[in-house]
Design a protein around this nucleic acid. Structure first.
Length: 801
DNA sequence: CAGTGAGCGAGCTTCCGCTTGACTT
C-alpha cells in the first residue's frame, strides 16, 4: 500500500515525476478533464443544456465515457492512500480538474493536498510538495462560468442555425470568430483595388583599385503615372550623379523568444510546411519520449535549469561571447502560463533519434531555444544619398554590414510576408562628393498587394492576438470550421498580368511590356458559401457574440470571479437572460436564410435561374419554387460559389448528367454528386481528376480514366484466393487489410499479409465480425470517433492536392 | 460514398478545453 497518491494531467508527466519522488509516492494521470456538462434532457433541464437555468444555473456534470475506467482506478488507489496530491496544472482548467477529481473520487477534504509547479524539475517538485495548499474554489468557479457560458452560447445558437440556415451547423464563442476572420479577410480582398506605381532603381559602376562593383540605389518615392517615370528617366540621360552624404549608424536585432504553441505552429508551418495538426502530433511524440517539454503552452518562460543548460551549451559550441541570458515575458492576451516554454528537455542534445519529422521539429525547437539565450546581432547600417544634377530628387542606397552575428549564427525567424526587399549588402568604398558612373536605370511598374489570406498558422496567430481559444484548442478549432464546411484550405491559381518596364541604358530609353504570373496562393483558408452566409446571419443578429472583444470582455469577468470579487452564476445570469431573449426573438422574427439570388432566365425555357444554399450545400435552381412543375436542381462544383457564379456557369451545370460515349459496349455517363464529378460505367464509379471538366470531358479521356482506375485496383491487390473470390488481401493507406463482401478487416499484428492463407483470413473475419454487445453510451462514442476519422481523412486529402 | 433539393414529421446535429490512444481504407 502506498501512502501518497499524486494525480497529474498527463501520463508522460506522471512518469517523469515518479522518478523525482520517493517510493512512498505513486503518480497517476487523469488524462485531462474527467467530467463534463451532461447533454441529456432532464426535468430541470428540458433543453439538454447540462445547466439547470432556473436553479441558479446549476451545472449537471457526468463522467466522460472514456474516463470511467481511469476514475475507477483512481478511486481505488485514493481509498488506500493517506494523502492525495492533486498536481494538475496551475491554471483555471487545471484547478477545475482537481476539483472535479475531488468530487468524482469523493475525496475527503483532509486527505487532499493541492500542489502546483510550472517546471518539471526535481527542485520545483520538491518545493511544491513542501508547500501544499487547498483547492482554490474561486478559480474553479471562474472555470465553471467559462464552461457554462460556452455551453449556453453554443447550444442555443447552433439549433437556431439548424432552423434558419441548414441542419448540423454550429456556432460558438471561438469558432464563429474564426469564421468571421476568414470571411472578412475575403471581403477585404474582394474590395481591394490594385494600383500600380513605377519604382526607379539605378545601378552605378564603381571602379576602385582595379576592382569593379555595382552600387544599387533607389528613388524613395514612386511615380503613379508612367509619363512621370518616363520624364524622370529622360532627365537622367545627361545628368551627373554625385554622392551627397554617407551616414552610418549601428543597429541591432534581438532574438525571438522561445516557442509557445502558437509560435511553434507558425514557424513549423513556414519553415517545415507542417499543418498545425501535424506540428502538434509530432510535438506530442517528442514530449512523450521525453525529448521536449510540454507542447501546449502560452508561456515564454524558461526554468533556471534550462537557462543554465543553454549557457553551457552556447559557451562550449560558440564561445562565451555568444551567451546572453534572457528571461522573456509573455505579452499575449489571456495567457495563463501554467507551463514552461516549449524547449528541448536536454539542451546539450542537438540531435535526436526519431523519424524525419521528429528530427526536423526538434531541430527547430533546439535552435530557437538556444538562439533565445544568445547575444544580439549587431549591424552597421549605411545610407548613401546621391544627388542628380538635373533634378532636386535624390537616390538612396542602403548598405548593411554584419558586425557580430550573435543569435543569427543558429536561427533566423521567418515571416509571413515574402516581399523581397532590395538585398542589402556591403557597399563599395565611397566618399562624399565622388561622381558616379550610371550603368543603367530601370523604371518598373509594381502593383499593390491585397491583404494575404490566412494560413492555418497565421489564423492561430490572430486567435492569440485576440485572446480567443487556448493552446490546446488552436488546431482542433481550425479542424472544426473545416468540418462544418465554413472554411476550406485551398490553393488559388495565379493569373497572368502585364507590366511595363522602362530601361535607360547608354543614353537610350527603351520601353517593354512584360508579363508575369501573380496571385498564386497555396494552402490558404477560404470561406465557403455556407461560412459566408452563417457569418452574415450571426453578424446581423448576434454581433455582440462574434464581436472580436467578446472573449476579452468575458475574460475580465472570469478574472473577477477568480479574485473572489464576483459570484459566478450572477455573472452568467446577467449574460444569459438578455442573450436568451435575443435568441428567442431571432427565432420568431427572422426569415430563413438561403442566400438566394436570381441569376437570370434560361434562354431555352424562359424559366428563372436562382442560386442558393440548399439542404446539402450550394445549388442552382431552374424554375420558381412556387411553380406547378417541380424546379430542377444542380449542385455547384468545387471552386464555384454563390458570390461569383454566372448565368452561363449555371446553364452548364444543368447540362449534366450526360452521356459522353461508350466503352466496351456500355455507355459512360458523366455527372456530379456530393463527392464531386464522376463517370458511371457498368455500375462502376470513377472520379474525375481535378483538371477534368465534367461538362467538356471527351470520350477518350473518360476511357483513359476508367483504365487508370482499373490499374490502381490491380496494384492494390496483394493476394486473392481462387477457392473463394470474395476474400481479398488489399493494400490501403494504412497498410494491408482484408476485404470481404464490401467490408474491411484489420490484419492482427505479427501476421505477414502476403503469406496469409484463406483459412487465416476467414478466421480473422470471423473474430472481427462477432457482434459486440454495446451499451447506448458506448455507441455514441463510436459514432463521434467515426466522425473524427472522416475529418482527418478529408484533411489529408486537401493537403495532398 | 455516387442523380438528394417540394412538404410533412420523426429523431438527430451543437459548445470549449483538458488529455491520449483507437480508428480509419
Amino acid at each position: 500500500m502506498v501512502k501518497n497518491l499524486v494525480i497529474v494531467e498527463s501520463p508522460a508527466k506522471a512518469k517523469t515525476i515518479e522518478g523525482f519522488l520517493g517510493k512512498d509516492f505513486i503518480v497517476k494521470s487523469s488524462m485531462g478533464h474527467v467530467r463534463d456538462l451532461a447533454k441529456n434532457k432532464t426535468k430541470e433541464d428540458t433543453h439538454g443544456l447540462g445547466v439547470e437555468i432556473n436553479n441558479g444555473f446549476k451545472p449537471v456534470y457526468e463522467l466522460l465515457n472514456d474516463k470511467k475506467l481511469i476514475v475507477a482506478e483512481l478511486k481505488k488507489l485514493a481509498k488506500d492512500a493517506e494523502t492525495i496530491w492533486l498536481a494538475t496544472d496551475e491554471d483555471r482548467e487545471g484547478e477545475a480538474i482537481s476539483w472535479h477529481l475531488a468530487e468524482a473520487l469523493k475525496l475527503k477534504e483532509e486527505k487532499i493536498k493541492r500542489i502546483v509547479f510550472h517546471e518539471i524539475t526535481k527542485s520545483a517538485i520538491t518545493e511544491a510538495v513542501e508547500n501544499p495548499r487547498s483547492i482554490n474554489i474561486d478559480l474553479v468557479n471562474a472555470q465553471q462560468a467559462r464552461r457554462v457560458l460556452d455551453r449556453l452560447v453554443g447550444f442555443e445558437l447552433s439549433p437556431l442555425l439548424w432552423k434558419k440556415v441548414k441542419p448540423s451547423l454550429s456556432a460558438g464563442r471561438v469558432q464563429s470568430v474564426a469564421v468571421r476572420l476568414v470571411v472578412e479577410r475575403e471581403e477585404e480582398i474582394k474590395n481591394f483595388i490594385t494600383t500600380s506605381a513605377y519604382k526607379i532603381t539605378a545601378n552605378f559602376e564603381i571602379e576602385k583599385n582595379g576592382h569593379s562593383s555595382v552600387l544599387v540605389a533607389e528613388l524613395p518615392n514612386r511615380f503613379s503615372k508612367k509619363d512621370d517615370a518616363l520624364s524622370f528617366l529622360k532627365k537622367c540621360i545627361n545628368a551627373e550623379f554625385s554622392i551627397a552624404s554617407i551616414e552610418t549608424k549601428p543597429a541591432k536585432k534581438t532574438p525571438p523568444p522561445p516557442f509557445t504553441t502558437s509560435t511553434l505552429q507558425q514557424e513549423a508551418g513556414r519553415k517545415l510546411g507542417f499543418s498545425v495538426t501535424k506540428t502538434m502530433v509530432v510535438a506530442q511524440q517528442l514530449y512523450e519520449s521525453g525529448k521536449i517539454t510540454y507542447m501546449r503552452t502560452d508561456s515564454v518562460n524558461l526554468s533556471d535549469l534550462a537557462l543554465n543548460m543553454a549557457k553551457n551549451e552556447i559557451t562550449s559550441k560558440y564561445g562565451s561571447e555568444y551567451v546572453k541570458t534572457r528571461q522573456y515575458t509573455t505579452k499575449s492576451k489571456g495567457a495563463q502560463e501554467a507551463h514552461e516554454a516549449i524547449r528541448p528537455s536536454y539542451l546539450n542534445k542537438q540531435n535526436i533519434e526519431g523519424d524525419n519529422s521528429q528530427k526536423r521539429l526538434y531541430d527547430l525547437i533546439w535552435k530557437r531555444t538556444i538562439a533565445s539565450q544568445m547575444g544580439d546581432a549587431e549591424f552597421e547600417k549605411t545610407n548613401v544619398t546621391i544627388d542628380i544634377s538635373s533634378t532636386s530628387e535624390k537616390l538612396i542606397a542602403h548598405g548593411e554590414v554584419l558586425k557580430f552575428d550573435g543569435f543569427l549564427k543558429v536561427y533566423i525567424e521567418s515571416t509571413d510576408d515574402d516581399d523581397d526587399d532590395a538585398q542589402k549588402g556591403i557597399l563599395p568604398p565611397l566618399k562624399v562628393g565622388e561622381f558616379l558612373k550610371l550603368q543603367d536605370m530601370l523604371a518598373l511598374e509594381r502593383f499593390t498587394q491585397h491583404p494575404a489570406r490566412y494560413t492555418e498558422a497565421s489564423l492561430v496567430k490572430k486567435f492569440e492576438e485576440l485572446g480567443i481559444g487556448r493552446p490546446s484548442t488552436y488546431a482542433p478549432t481550425i479542424s472544426t470550421v473545416q468540418k462544418r464546411g465554413y472554411v476550406v484550405i485551398d490553393e488559388k491559381q495565379g493569373v497572368q498580368r502585364s507590366y511595363t518596364s522602362i530601361l535607360l541604358k547608354n543614353g537610350i530609353i527603351k520601353e517593354d511590356l512584360k508579363s508575369e504570373i501573380t496571385g498564386y496562393e497555396k494552402s490558404k483558408l477560404f470561406p465557403t458559401d455556407i461560412g459566408t452566409l452563417v457569418n452574415k446571419f450571426l453578424l446581423q443578429y448576434f454581433m455582440n457574440i462574434i464581436d472580436y472583444n467578446f472573449t476579452a470582455n468575458v475574460e475580465k469577468e472570469f478574472d473577477e470571479i477568480a479574485q473572489g470579487q464576483k459570484v459566478w452564476n450572477q455573472v452568467i445570469k446577467e449574460f444569459y437572460f438578455p442573450f436568451h431573449e435575443q435568441v428567442e426573438n431571432t427565432s420568431k422574427t427572422s426569415e430563413k436564410v438561403s442566400g438566394e439570388k436570381l441569376l437570370g432566365t434560361d434562354p431555352a425555357t424562359g424559366k428563372n435561374i436562382f442560386v442558393k444554399i440548399g439542404k446539402y450545400g450550394p445549388i442552382v435552381q431552374m424554375g420558381d419554387t412556387e411553380s406547378p412543375d417541380k424546379p430542377r436542381f444542380a449542385g455547384l462544383m468545387k471552386g464555384q460559389s454563390i458570390e461569383t457564379i454566372t448565368l452561363d456557369d449555371a446553364l452548364e451545370l444543368f447540362k449534366l448528367p450526360k452521356i459522353v460515349g461508350s466503352f466496351e459496349g456500355s455507355e459512360m455517363l458523366v455527372s456530379v454528386s456530393r463527392f464531386g464529378p464522376y463517370i458511371k460505367h457498368n455500375n462502376a464509379f470513377i472520379s474525375l481528376k481535378k483538371t477534368d471538366n465534367p461538362t467538356t470531358i471527351t470520350e477518350s479521356r473518360a476511357i483513359e480514366l476508367i483504365l487508370e482506375k482499373r490499374d490502381v485496383e490491380i496494384n492494390k491487390l496483394i493476394k486473392e484466393f481462387s477457392e473463394n473470390t470474395d476474400v481479398k488481401v488489399l493494400k490501403g493507406r494504412w497498410g494491408a487489410y482484408i476485404s470481404m463482401n464490401k467490408k474491411n478487416y484489420k490484419i492482427p499484428k505479427g501476421k505477414e499479409p502476403i503469406s496469409l492463407t484463406l483459412e487465416e483470413c476467414l478466421n480473422i473475419v470471423g473474430v472481427q465480425n462477432k457482434p459486440e454487445p454495446k451499451s447506448s453510451k458506448s455507441k455514441s462514442k463510436t459514432k463521434s470517433e467515426t466522425a473524427k476519422g472522416k475529418t482527418l481523412k478529408g484533411k489529408t486529402k486537401t493537403k495532398k492536392k
